[in-house]
Design a protein around this nucleic acid. Structure first.
Lengths: 143, 143
DNA sequence: TATTGTTATACTCTATAACTATA
DNA sequence: TATAGTTATAGAGTATAACAATA
């Protein structure tokens, strides 16, 4: 009943260590695809939806806008994303994946998910479902 | 029974999103303490144990050795850590926290843990224990 | 006036290659 | 020869301040 706090890690400590592990997976997969982890994260965010403005994107990635400008510049230079002008607001642009960027994003995402699930391989599926449910609930209220 | 995959996130996707959330907490807390997230991570790793050599530290932080040299240089310049010569091997040095570094590390760690637990505030404690247990089991086998 | 995004600047982070010193 | 760590160098990531263009 109290095993987590007695013999294992507390809730927050477990999340922190798991977060580092996930970051390492991001680093390894990015390295193999010859992109940076930040570019991988940008690609993953853009896979989820439609084209998105710089301001919203900077909020999603937790970056100041000038930092995002540079990140998008470099990703655009490499042909992964492109800026499209916003028809309604002539100040704004929206960022979207190019076909090559989308293909890369899908591969990176699949590889990351695959490695994480492989790590969980021999744990009971029921436990994993419960973890996913609990974390989903937490994320729904927080971010 | 299948709610996680039907209505919520899969296991890996939940871990990835949780990881980003943890990174944001690290960023926010680091910012408030006027250090970089990488310095915060270094401090946290050093809190856990004794002085540690550069090679082991680079493995723990998933950094190439020259990257670690710079990170330790900057942390040392700010007075958070110090290099001590290894008595047995004259090539080696071990990195340890200064008193000021340890104080900062404890505060940063407490703040991060506090925010993560606050986020989980209204979730059933039993669920959190199960999550911590499952993740601890996964971490024990992985890294 | 407020908002969208960029430019200018300075620093940190990171990797690869080459190096020194010790084992 | 192999290992521990650093130096040299280049590029990427990040933030703050100041700016341009549009709303």
């Amino acid at each position: 009943m109290k095993s987590a706090t007695d013999a294992g890690l507390g809730f927050a400590a477990a999340l922190v260590r798991m977060s580092h592990l996930v970051q390492h997976v991001f680093s390894d997969v990015s390295r193999e695809r010859d992109i940076t982890p930040q570019q991988a994260q940008l690609l993953c965010v853009l896979t989820s939806g439609d084209a998105i403005g710089m301001t919203d994107l900077s909020r999603l990635l937790h970056l100041e806008k000038p930092s995002l400008t540079g990140l998008v510049d470099r990703a655009e230079r490499r042909g992964f994303v492109r800026r499209v002008r916003d028809g309604a607001d002539r100040r704004a642009c929206r960022v979207e994946l190019t076909p090559e960027g989308r293909e890369l994003a899908v591969r990176v995402h699949e590889e990351i998910v695959g490695r994480l699930e492989a790590m969980a391989g021999d744990l009971p599926g029921e436990d994993l479902l419960r973890v996913a449910d609990t974390l989903t609930g937490l994320l729904a209220r927080t971010g």
